[in-house]
């Protein structure tokens, strides 16, 4: 059933147009990138605040600061980076409407991201200073909080997506959303790397 054109007026008929599209043709793609723009601005402002506060101090971080063990933080980074590979399969497969690789990709991706959540929890537990110790502690904890928030919400999103994919039925128009989930997740991964380097290696 569809609107049909009355006789006597000129009409453009769009009844056969597809009901979804990939990439910048899709409004949600724009929504996601705008969300990422907002999030990136927040991360940039946090980083700027970090460097602004750093500019006031001659010793940085303040004496007596103990970071979480390097190997533990590196483990988180590795888990994050590993999660990119299966989500990349899913990303590739989505545009070809191949369900099986998407399912597997998301399952593995979710496992990797859950692993990152676990190591992150240990990381937080082993940080040797508090947010109320000094401004350094405050800003680093703020960065940790922001990223952990994204990490957990991203993991939950991956998990939900996995469930939906396995439960089915899967509509074709879910495919663009799958690609967008991947992009969001990569943002979570990529945004951590500079912060990780700064927190672990920035000393004067």
């Amino acid at each position: 059933m569809s609107e049909t054109a009355p006789v006597g007026r000129r009409f453009v008929d769009v009844s056969e147009l597809p009901m979804f599209a990939f990439g910048p043709r899709d409004p949600i793609w724009w929504g996601l990138w705008l969300l990422l723009a907002i999030e990136s601005t927040m991360f940039v402002l946090l980083a700027s605040s970090y460097f602004y506060l750093r500019g006031n101090e001659s010793t940085w971080p303040p004496p007596g600061v103990h970071q979480a063990p390097l190997w533990l933080t590196a483990l988180t980074v590795v888990a994050l980076l590993l999660s990119v590979i299966p989500t990349w399969w899913a990303f590739r497969a989505a545009i070809q409407f191949r369900l099986r690789p998407i399912q597997i990709g998301f399952l593995l991706g979710t496992l990797a991201s859950a692993a990152a959540c676990v190591t992150r929890a240990y990381e937080l537990a082993t940080i040797g200073y508090n947010w109320n110790s000094h401004a350094y502690g405050s800003i680093v904890w703020a960065i940790y909080f922001m990223h952990t928030f994204h990490l957990t919400s991203g993991t939950v999103e991956n998990a939900v997506m996995t469930v939906l994919l396995f439960k089915g039925p899967v509509e074709k128009k879910l495919m663009p959303d799958i690609r967008l989930s991947c992009i969001y997740w990569w943002f979570v991964v990529v945004s951590w790397i500079p912060f990780w380097i700064v927190i672990m290696f920035d000393k004067s």
Binding site: M1, E3, T4, R10, F11, V12, D13, E16
Partner: peptide, 18 residues
């Protein structure tokens, strides 16, 4: 005067043209 209009949406769904 005869500027064309767009038609072809399902009237039973909230369809929007992109």
């Amino acid at each position: 005067d005869d500027q064309p209009l767009v038609t072809g949406f399902r009237p039973d769904r909230r369809e929007v043209l992109i």
